[in-house]
């Protein structure tokens, strides 16, 4: 190269370093710009919803009225009650099942092709589109088992959908526990199950809790699988209350009741051409977002608070 001879070595170096610096600066700015656009989108989603839904958000009837043909009378009572009941079913099913599955895969499963198969399977399930779970529930629960379009079926389908999330969270939480804790337990004479029950699970609890909250937050907002099982959008009554004043105090009738949930109610209002219903949709969206953001915030808080307790 001719230039090298003429240009002094320090000038050459300066040029290279300067070019590198510029590239670094450009790259960092691009990264920041993307970050700002992404966060800006999140903020504008929320701001737009609040702005459009304000008239209904500030109307107390919105929270205590059933859906109605008149947009100004319509409310989200049956939707938020439905969401609460469905999530109750989901939590009761998925937490024990997911944690148990995760514990087995991480602590018990032998290293063979069966465990390998289950692992690929869980990873694939985590990526199966939610609407496919809806088809599963429609074909199997609703028609083959004849369970109908009920709170129980919706809770069940959301539980299956969340299952891989809980399994993965449990496994990751357990994986981060130092091996010494297990060895110490064994040295004290504990057997496998005692070790898991008394040492591993308590130590993994923050991680599991975080994963579970994030998974359930996503389940609250899931629309597609619940629509697919044929949930109704116009529910002007509430399921029977789970608690009653006379014996046996608990009432499980609500499991077999028809229902609607928040995201379906919102979808129903968005799809209507009238602008007044879209105001309702925006207001329902705000409530839905506050629910999920609050749960995600809780997960962040749990992770932050409990991180580093067990090292």
């Amino acid at each position: 190269m001719k230039a090298v001879g003429e240009e002094s070595a320090s000038q050459e170096l300066q040029r290279v370093v300067g070019a590198g610096r510029r590239a670094d600066w450009v790259m960092a700015s691009i990264g920041l710009a993307i970050l700002i656009v992404a966060m800006g989108t999140l903020i504008s989603v929320f701001a737009d919803l609040i702005h459009s839904g304000w008239p209904r958000l500030t109307d107390p009837d919105f929270y205590t009225n059933f859906p109605s043909r008149r947009a100004s009378d319509a409310g989200i009572l049956s939707a938020w009650v439905g969401t609460s009941l469905v999530m109750l079913v989901t939590i009761v099913i998925v937490i024990p099942l997911g944690v148990a599955g995760g514990v087995y895969l991480e602590e018990y499963a032998p290293h063979n092709w069966i465990s390998d198969f289950i692992e690929v399977n869980v990873s694939n399930l985590a990526g199966v589109p939610s609407i496919i779970y809806g088809l599963l529930a429609l074909g199997l629960f609703v028609y083959t088992f004849g369970m109908g379009q009920t709170v129980l079926v919706a809770g069940l389908v959301l539980a299956l959908l969340t299952l891989p999330v809980i399994i993965v969270a449990t496994r990751e939480a357990i994986r981060s526990i130092p091996q010494e804790l297990r060895e110490a337990a064994f040295a004290l004479g504990a057997d496998k199950w005692q070790t898991v029950r008394l040492y591993i699970l308590p130590a993994a609890r923050p991680g599991i809790l975080t994963g579970a909250i994030v998974g359930l937050a996503r389940a609250i907002g899931e629309t597609a699988p619940v629509i697919t099982i044929g949930a109704l959008t116009f529910i002007a009554f509430l399921p029977p209350a789970p608690l009653q004043s006379d014996f046996p105090y608990l009432n499980f009738e609500w499991l077999n009741a028809p229902f609607t949930v928040m995201p379906i109610q919102m979808f129903n209002w968005v799809s209507r051409p009238q602008a007044e219903f879209q105001v309702n949709a925006a207001a329902a969206g705000v409530v839905l977002m506050i629910m999920t953001l609050a749960m995600n915030g809780l997960a962040i808080y749990v992770r932050f608070r409990l991180r580093g307790r067990v090292q």
């Binding site: 970050l35 992404a38 966060m39 989108t41 999140l42 504008s44 989603v45 737009d48 919803l49 459009s52 994030v214 937050a217 996503r218 609250i220 907002g221 899931e222 629309t223 597609a224 995201p263 919102m266 979808f267 968005v270 879209q278 949709a281 925006a282 969206g285 839905l288 977002m289 999920t292 953001l293 749960m295 995600n296 962040i300 992770r303």
Partner: peptide, 23 residues
């Protein structure tokens, strides 16, 4: 930043649908 990014993922898709159609 990472937890904040998770919030973007956590927004219900029906809300994103509303945002796409009406914003």
């Amino acid at each position: 930043i990472k937890p904040l990014l998770e919030l973007i993922e956590g927004v219900p898709t029906v809300v994103y649908g509303y945002f796409a159609l009406l914003f």
